[in-house]
């Protein structure tokens, strides 16, 4: 039984801007993600990465510009039913009152996709893919941080997405678990060809598994390129972000530009 039986889709962000009251968070962002690509958006905390992801997921409405998924505008309510997209939240956003099995089974049950036997098979297959079969009857509160992230990914797999959005998939994890999650993202693309949009400030993840990397800082898109070229950039801000040097004598947080 295949977990994902759908083709991957592309994503286009056109001249997208967002402000909250008078605070500008994102400024005229345009990116294009090809079907089957792993596209990583990197940037320091507060640069607007998660805001962009929420808009791609259709949870918020942009002030300017538009977001097209497989050519369909996400602000159109019909798009959500036409494209199969899953968002993996930073904290997992698992339903705490449900077991891991029920968390995974919720989407197909609510949309009445399969009969009981097929549903059980799909859920167990997704759990097996992420080595979680023993956690099926556990509740989210009984899981470690890494397991919660894996359950969130497994929940997304059951939805048979054409596009998976990851919000900081490796944050709050130990380095080994972070590497494991990166491997899972790469593996899902290799096995099912699913398009992945990853928001992260994990340099190792971006430089290892991404096809292309975008650098977002203070609401502006500074660079979009392959990991190799991004690593060789001459932009001092990007260089400092990717390879920060710890300078005890002249700390960053005491510099004037740090207050931005």
């Amino acid at each position: 039984m295949e977990i994902i039986e759908r083709a991957s889709i592309g994503l286009k962000v056109e001249n997208f801007s967002k402000s909250y009251d008078s605070v500008k968070v994102l400024n005229d962002i345009s990116i294009e993600v090809e079907p089957g690509e792993i596209f990583v958006i990197m940037g320091p905390s507060g640069s607007g990465k998660s805001v962009l992801l929420k808009h791609v997921a259709g949870l918020e409405i942009p002030n300017n510009g538009r977001i097209l998924i497989d050519g369909k505008d996400i602000s159109d309510p019909k798009t959500r039913t036409q494209v199969h997209m899953a968002l993996i939240f930073q904290a997992g956003a698992l339903f705490n009152s449900m077991s891991v099995f029920d968390n995974l089974a919720l989407y197909p049950r609510e949309h009445r996709l399969y009969n009981k036997k097929t549903l059980r098979g799909k859920v167990m297959k997704a759990l097996e893919t992420l080595s979680l079969e023993d956690a099926a009857e556990k509740f989210p509160s009984q899981l470690s941080g890494g397991m919660r992230k894996r359950v969130a990914i497994a929940r997304a797999l059951v939805m048979e997405p054409e596009l998976i959005l990851y919000d900081e998939p490796t944050s709050e994890l130990d380095p080994t678990m972070g590497a494991t999650i990166s491997e899972i993202i790469a593996d899902l693309r290799a096995e099912f060809g699913v398009t992945s949009l990853v928001v992260s400030h994990d340099r190792d993840l971006a430089l290892t598994i991404a096809d292309r990397v975008a650098i977002l800082m203070d609401g502006d898109l500074l660079e979009v390129d392959t990991p190799e070229n991004i690593n060789k950039t001459e932009n001092p801000r990007v260089k400092d972000f990717l390879n920060p040097v710890i300078d005890i004598k002249n700390p960053r947080f005491k510099k004037k530009e740090y207050s931005r």
Binding site: A57, G58, T81, A93, E110
Partner: peptide
């Protein structure tokens, strides 16, 4: 309120529920 704050409600929306 707990479901909203911990993004469970957002998760439902992204699942088209």
């Amino acid at each position: 309120a707990t479901m909203k704050v911990y993004q469970e409600v957002d998760a439902l929306v992204t699942m088209n529920i």
